[in-house]
């Protein structure tokens, strides 16, 4: 009698294992058929050798890749610098916009207007305007280095988005948290610093990463200022050889950086969902 439930559990587990194995097999076969078929179809077409030569030429890849990689280093540096600037500026804007002090009103107004403005203008236009417009003014003491201007333009554009993300994060913190922070005697600023912001930032890490993935791609826009970063190098190579392999080489570099970021983001969101469900279940 007592052996009965155990053996039934074993029977069920065995059945589940069998069905798991069968599902894995079906998935594998289906993948081979679909992808293999697609590759076969593509490579046996009449025009395939031309496509291969134009986009996947090993020769063109070898000759252009070192320069593209060097150009990509500029992208990476620009991305890292702009990311830090954007984080600082948007946190500042978001906190500023949540203040009440009347003395800060003009700054709040400025922040609100510029956020709406720079969210409305295409990033490429901002880069162009700042990159060519500021040097045209020939102001004394204002840098003319296109890299600095490009970083400034990207920072303006992305701060408009990211500050809204932070603002949503601040709003997402339960009002009771602020009440509790004030009730224990913290000042408004301390309540923001020690209670609200830490929770706000944690709540918006996924959308934040999302914006940084697009920033990572948008640094290529600075090529319009003649900065020879990866895309620009590839474009020049492609134009001189009528071969598009360099562009694909550049694309693969961007992907190498953004894909791990996306995977990381996916994992975080999954964990976040799990945590939320847990919290709700406890409620």
């Amino acid at each position: 009698m007592s052996a009965e439930p155990i053996s039934r559990r074993e029977v069920r587990a065995a059945a589940r294992r069998r069905s798991d194995r069968r599902n894995a097999l079906i998935a594998a076969v289906s993948t081979i058929v679909v992808i293999g078929g697609g590759v076969l179809l593509l490579t046996t077409r009449q025009g395939w050798p031309v496509v291969q030569e134009t986009f996947f030429s090993p020769e063109a890849f070898r000759t252009s890749f070192p320069d593209i990689l060097r150009g990509f280093w500029i992208d990476v540096k620009l991305f890292l610098a702009v990311e830090v600037l954007v984080l600082i500026a948007s946190l500042g804007v978001a906190v500023l916009r949540s203040t009440r002090a009347p003395a800060l009103f003009p700054f709040r107004l400025l922040a609100a207007v510029s956020t709406d403005l720079f969210r409305g203008i295409p990033t490429i236009l901002v880069v162009y305007l700042i990159g060519f417009g500021i040097p045209a003014l020939a102001l004394p003491g204002v840098p003319n280095d296109p890299i600095i201007l490009a970083a400034f333009a990207l920072t303006l554009s992305y701060t408009a988005y990211v500050s809204e993300v932070f603002r949503a994060g601040i709003d997402s913190v339960h009002p009771g948290q602020r009440g509790a922070a004030l009730a224990v005697g913290l000042s408004r600023a301390q309540a923001m610093r020690f209670v609200i912001l830490p929770q706000a930032v944690r709540n918006v890490i996924p959308p934040l990463l999302n914006d940084f993935i697009s920033l990572q791609k948008d640094v290529a826009l600075v090529s319009v200022l003649g900065i020879v970063e990866a895309f620009r190098v590839a474009q020049i190579d492609a134009a001189s050889t009528f071969n598009y392999t360099p562009l694909l080489a550049a694309a693969s570099l961007y992907v190498i950086v953004t894909v791990p970021l996306s995977l990381f983001l996916d994992r975080m969101q999954k964990r976040d969902r799990g945590r939320r469900r847990l919290e709700e279940a406890r409620r």
Partner: peptide, 17 residues
């Protein structure tokens, strides 16, 4: 803030950080 420093409050929903 000075007044709140000499008072303390506990809430229905705890409001722990």
């Amino acid at each position: 803030q000075r007044v709140r420093r000499s008072l303390a409050m506990v809430f229905q929903h705890f409001n722990l950080f």
